[in-house]
Design a protein around this nucleic acid. Sequence first.
DNA 1: ACAATTTGACCGTG
DNA 2: CACGGTCAAATTGT
Length: 305
Amino acid sequence: MGTLSAWSENLSTKKKKKVIKQLVEGQDSANQLQILLHNNNNNPSQQQQTEHHLSSTKEQLVDKILSSFNQTLAELTSVNVSSSHNQTGSNDDQLVKSEDCSESRRLRPKDKRGCYKRKRAEEAWTVVSATTKDGHGWRKYGQKEILNSKHPRSYFRCTRKYDQGCRATKQVQRLEDDGSQMHRTTYIGTHTCTNRSFKGPRIISNFESRGTCMAPIKQHDDRLSNLAPTTPVIKRETKEEMSGTPSDVTELDSAMWKDLMEFECYSEPDVMISNVYSCTGIKFRNFEMDFVNGFEFDGSDECVL
DNA sequence: ACAATTTGACCGTG
DNA sequence: CACGGTCAAATTGT
């Protein structure tokens, strides 16, 4: 995982401005969307009227928001990737070792547990949010008490790890401040699975198309055969996710709205917009504050994950 | 019965 | 050696 200082140093002023602009645009769209949703909830008949007054429709706003995140993330991760040394190659190597190891482990007697190769730092980014939902299926595989932290950290891997070889993992930890239901979610690695269960905004998954040195960018299903382990027994871990397979934009959107509504239930509308995204190793205050302060990261140790 | 989570051990990294 | 990421047996849930 690259350090914050390294990340920040590699972010040119020009890029910072671009990133800020994109995020502000996204925030603006989100605000408009919030108004729309709010009006829709209170008085559905008013919605069309409101929509007319605003410059965009719901769908357009969602597009803008997602586009904002996608562009921003692409910008940031291109920095990330360029600043990281032979990340992918070593990752692949590590992963192969790890997978091989885990394969053999299954046959090993109990007393020989733990033969694995820890993954090298993959690119990671962090989301601070009241909800940990992100539209992907996750399986919890561990929990740890973290030194000087009140709350334990939970470890999740993609449910498609074994059937599609997806490497994505995430770590979720509740923020220190009491009373707050906010969680810090650190995503590590990108999804290489074809997730047909899309339940919410796939902000994260759009990383997949960053066109960098990550996993194969091939979008065809033939990659499944490439990535799928040769293990004869494939456990299906995504029962409920497979049931719904949104195939068109309408279904996809309705799923997205559902998730957005859930999100709204978790947090006050005013909070909703402001306290969401940050990236690798950023201090986890209100991210909006960082915008105001010119997107400056001090690279101090307190931000190390 | 199967899937998901919990939990303690194992082990890599710094 | 401490910390924390990962594994898998045991437990719990559906």
